[in-house]
């Protein structure tokens, strides 16, 4: 063990003693854990919620059959939602807009920011495909009028049109717009809007609960030394530092 770690450890021990944190042994802690009852049907619900929200329609269908858990929304709506998401991810923005409107025209009507981002993505795809003339026409006719309504739209429009100014876009300051992550961002924005329109939460519950676990452990750290789970993916209980 390097001196550094010895010092760090000593420091941690001193700190624990100084604040006289209560130490909960592994044995005591395991007893507390055993007293906690988690219902399987609640865990099934969590898993189903994850599959549905993330759009894994086949898995959700199979899970319904294998576990008996009922999905909270009609699984058919997942298929439509994923088709829209996929279209944006593949750069078929026009197609995606049409699909959203088939699903529920109110989604884009009531969500100008989303509509702008979709149009912006369309412009990006035109530029990516080298359709300069079409891109210019589209920017002037469809996007500029919206920019006038909203300052932040205008800035984003200008940033996007800047792509046209560079011969080598792979090396320009706004190259991030051409990155796959921009498509994913737009896709997840549409996805969230569709979920909201279906009165469904846009994020699955499981990640929030995992964050809550991290938070709860940190909170308890202030009061006590106890066995923690540091690696969420193995759920391994680690002994308290004494």
């Amino acid at each position: 063990m390097s001196l550094f770690w010895i010092v760090i450890r000593q420091f941690a021990e001193n700190e624990a003693m100084a604040t006289s944190k209560k130490v909960i042994t592994r044995e005591e802690w395991e007893k507390k854990l055993n007293d906690v009852k988690i219902r399987k049907e609640d865990m099934n619900k969590l898993v189903m919620n994850f599959l549905v929200t993330e759009g894994y329609v086949d898995a959700a269908e199979k899970f319904r059959m294998e576990s008996g858990a009922e999905p909270e929304i009609d699984l058919a709506t997942i298929t439509d939602r994923m088709a829209v998401k996929k279209a944006v991810q593949c750069g078929n923005v026009e197609d995606a807009i049409e699909k959203v409107n088939d699903l529920n025209p109110e989604i884009l009507d009531t969500n100008p920011q989303l509509f702008f981002h979709l149009q912006q993505q369309r412009l990006i795809e035109l530029i990516r495909n080298g359709k300069v003339e079409e891109a210019l026409e589209f920017a002037q006719e469809e996007l500029a009028p919206r920019g006038e309504e909203n300052q932040s739209f205008l800035e984003e429009l200008e940033r996007t049109v800047a792509l046209l100014a560079f011969e080598d876009v792979s090396n320009c300051p706004v190259r991030d717009l051409l990155d796959i992550s921009q498509r994913l961002k737009t896709a997840s924005e549409v996805n969230a809007a569709i979920l909201t329109s279906q009165s469904h939460e846009k994020d699955p519950k499981l990640p929030s609960l995992l964050k809550m676990l991290m938070w709860a452990q940190d909170q308890l750290d202030e009061k006590a030394a106890y066995p923690r789970i540091n690696d969420l993916s193995t759920a391994m209980l680690e002994d308290p530092p004494i």
């Binding site: 802690w29 854990l33 906690v36 865990m43 969590l46 898993v47 609960l209 676990l213 789970i229 969420l232």
Partner: peptide, 11 residues
């Protein structure tokens, strides 16, 4: 999943 949820509840 169950172990994580137990840990959360216990904390």
């Amino acid at each position: 999943l169950e172990r994580l949820l137990r840990q959360l509840t216990a904390c």
